[in-house]
C-alpha cells in the first residue's frame, strides 16, 4: 500500500544522562543502524513536552521516539516519571483523532544499553515504515 522505497524521517529525543550516552555507546561500538533519524538531546525526558512531539509531526517527521532513563535512574529523581505518564496519554490522544499512535513511542535506554538503543531504533523505524508517510495539511493524520 505504501511506497516501497519509503524511508521515514524519525526524530529521537534522548535524555542527556542515559539515553544519549546509550546512543553514544552504540556509535562507539560501531553497531550497524539505519541512518534516517535525528537526535535532539534534552537534559531530561521530562523536558519533552507533548507539544514538541506534535510539532515534530506537524513539521513532517513520520515518527517521534522519546528515550528516557529507566524509572529509578533519573538524574532529577522523578523527571522521567512525568514522561512515563504524559507520552502514553499523548498516544491515546493521537489515536482518538485518527493519527496512528505507533508514530510516537516511549522507551527506556540506559547509558550502558548501546545494543538496546540499536534494537529500539531499528524496530521503531520498521514500524513507522509500515505505517507510511505522514500527511500534512488539513488532512493531517493516519
Amino acid at each position: 500500500m505504501n511506497d516501497e522505497n519509503f524511508e521515514p524521517r524519525i526524530l529521537v529525543f534522548c535524555c542527556n544522562w542515559c539515553s544519549y550516552a546509550g546512543a553514544d555507546l552504540a556509535g562507539v561500538s560501531r553497531l550497524q543502524m539505519p541512518s534516517n533519524f535525528r537526535i535532539v538531546r534534552v537534559m531530561c525526558s521530562g523536558r519533552v513536552e507533548p507539544e514538541f512531539v506534535m510539532r515534530a509531526l506537524r513539521n513532517g517527521f513520520d515518527g517521534v521516539l522519546i528515550l528516557a532513563c529507566h524509572i529509578g535512574d533519573c538524574h532529577y529523581i522523578a523527571g522521567n516519571h512525568r514522561t512515563a505518564k504524559r507520552i502514553p496519554l499523548l498516544r491515546k490522544l493521537l489515536d482518538h483523532v485518527g493519527i496512528d499512535s505507533k508514530r510516537v513511542m516511549l522507551d527506556y535506554v540506559s547509558a550502558a544499553e548501546g545494543e538496546k538503543f540499536k534494537t529500539v531504533i531499528s524496530g521503531f523505524i520498521d514500524d513507522v515504515r509500515q505505517i507510511g508517510p505522514i500527511r500534512t495539511g488539513l488532512k493531517w493524520g493516519a
Partner: peptide, 9 residues
C-alpha cells in the same frame, strides 16, 4: 482510525 481522522479534520 481513518474514519476518526476524517471526522475530526
Amino acid at each position: 482510525l481513518e474514519e476518526r481522522g476524517e471526522f475530526w479534520s
